[in-house]
């Protein structure tokens, strides 16, 4: 991960990725409820994304 950059970013840089993750989470939480089998599989990826990101950041920090 790139450390500190001098330039202060706008809203999009700070909240852009979190908003995408949040929207995916919400879509996944609802898809398993509303769309049965296909929605279920989608939810595993969409809701599981934060856990995957955490694992990835943790692993890349150890390398």
């Amino acid at each position: 991960m790139k450390p500190t950059s001098r330039r202060a970013g706008g809203w999009l840089r700070v909240f852009g990725i979190p908003v995408v993750i949040g929207v995916l989470s919400l879509a996944g939480l609802l898809s398993a409820l509303l769309l049965d089998e296909a929605g279920r599989v989608f939810s595993w990826f969409a809701v599981g994304l934060p856990a995957a990101i955490a694992a990835w950041v943790f692993a890349s920090g150890k390398l």
Binding site: M1, T4, S5
Partner: peptide, 29 residues
């Protein structure tokens, strides 16, 4: 975090900063 890229963990800084970065990252995702 406005001066940091997403998912920045400043591993070279103090323990407090490292935990702050993890707190921010895990919290926001």
């Amino acid at each position: 975090t406005r001066r940091l890229n997403f998912a920045t963990i400043r591993a070279e800084k103090s323990r407090r900063i490292v935990w702050l970065d993890w707190h921010n990252l895990l919290g926001v995702i």
